[in-house]
C-alpha cells in the first residue's frame, strides 16, 4: 500500500481523431504540429460580475487567470491561441477589465494569432480587444467549438469537466480533460470556475459509452483514469 513516488508529468498525451495533443497541467491543450494553444472557459471578470449583484467576490480572479495563461504561453510559445468560448463571464465583462489586465492580454497577443470563439456567456465579440472572432473553427480533421455536440474530431469546453477519484477513504475532486480518442471536452481555465462531474448525464450525450478517459489535473502531475472509475 506504499504510494509510489509520483512521476512528475506536467502534461499527458491526448489523441483526438488521430491527432496528438498535449493536455497541459494548467488546463490548456497544446497541438505542437500546429503550434496551437487552446484554453476554454476562462470566465474573466466573474468576480466583478457577481459584485454587480452584491456578492463581493475577491476581484483578483482575472489577474490570477491571466497570469496562468501567460505562463503557459511563455512555456509553449504558440503561433496561434484559441480561447474556446466563455472567455468572459458576461457580455459586458471585457469592458470591466482593468487597464493592467487589458495590457496583459495585449502583450500575450503580440506576435501571434488570437481567435475568440463565441460562448454562451460571451456570444458577442470582445469589441475592445484584438483578435478575430468565430463561432467555430476547423483545422484539418479537428473542429473547435464552445458547446460540445459529440461529433467526431471535436474539441469543446462548456461543461467544465471534473472527476472525483476515491482512494483510501479520501476522495479527490479535480478538473480534468475528458476524451475517448474521437472527441475531447476541456476543463475550465478560470480561477473561479467550478466543475461538473464527468458522470453527470450531460457527458452521456457527448460520449456514447463510459469508455472514455479522464485526464485529471493533479498538483504537479497529470493522472489518467477510466471514466467508470470516477464519480
Amino acid at each position: 500500500m506504499n504510494a509510489p513516488a509520483a512521476k512528475q508529468q506536467p502534461d499527458a498525451a491526448l489523441t483526438v481523431s488521430g491527432v496528438a495533443f498535449a493536455a497541459d497541467l494548467s488546463g490548456a491543450l497544446y497541438w505542437s504540429e500546429e503550434r496551437l494553444l487552446v484554453v476554454s472557459d476562462m470566465h474573466l471578470e466573474k468576480g466583478s460580475s457577481f459584485a454587480m449583484r452584491g456578492v463581493l467576490l475577491p476581484p483578483f480572479d482575472t489577474v490570477a487567470t491571466l497570469a496562468r495563461l501567460a505562463a503557459v504561453i511563455a512555456r509553449t510559445n504558440p503561433r496561434t491561441v484559441i480561447a474556446l468560448g466563455d472567455s468572459f463571464h458576461d457580455r459586458d465583462a471585457h469592458q470591466r477589465l482593468a487597464d493592467a489586465d487589458r495590457d496583459a492580454i495585449a502583450a500575450m497577443q503580440t506576435g501571434r494569432d488570437w481567435i475568440w470563439i463565441a460562448g454562451n456567456h460571451d456570444p458577442l465579440p470582445p469589441a475592445t480587444l484584438r483578435g478575430s472572432v468565430a463561432e467555430e473553427i476547423a483545422i484539418g480533421a479537428i473542429s473547435f467549438r464552445h458547446e460540445p455536440t459529440g461529433v467526431e474530431g471535436e474539441i469543446a469546453g462548456h461543461l467544465h469537466p471534473k472527476a472525483r477519484v476515491a482512494t483510501r477513504g479520501r476522495a479527490i475532486d479535480r478538473r480534468c480533460f475528458a476524451s475517448d480518442g474521437m472527441r475531447a471536452v476541456m476543463p475550465s481555465f478560470g480561477a473561479y470556475t467550478g466543475g461538473l462531474s464527468i458522470r453527470d448525464r450531460a457527458f452521456a450525450k457527448i460520449f456514447p459509452s463510459l469508455d472514455f478517459t479522464a485526464h485529471v489535473l493533479g498538483d504537479a502531475s497529470m493522472h489518467a483514469f477510466p471514466a467508470a472509475r470516477c464519480f
Binding site: 500500500m1 509510489p4 509520483a6 477519484v165 482512494t167 479527490i172 479535480r174 493533479g218 502531475s221 493522472h223
Partner: peptide, 12 residues
C-alpha cells in the same frame, strides 16, 4: 493528492 492519485492508478 498526486501520491494518492498515482496510487489509485497503480491499484487499477
Amino acid at each position: 493528492a498526486d501520491e494518492l492519485l498515482a496510487e489509485a492508478a497503480e491499484e487499477l
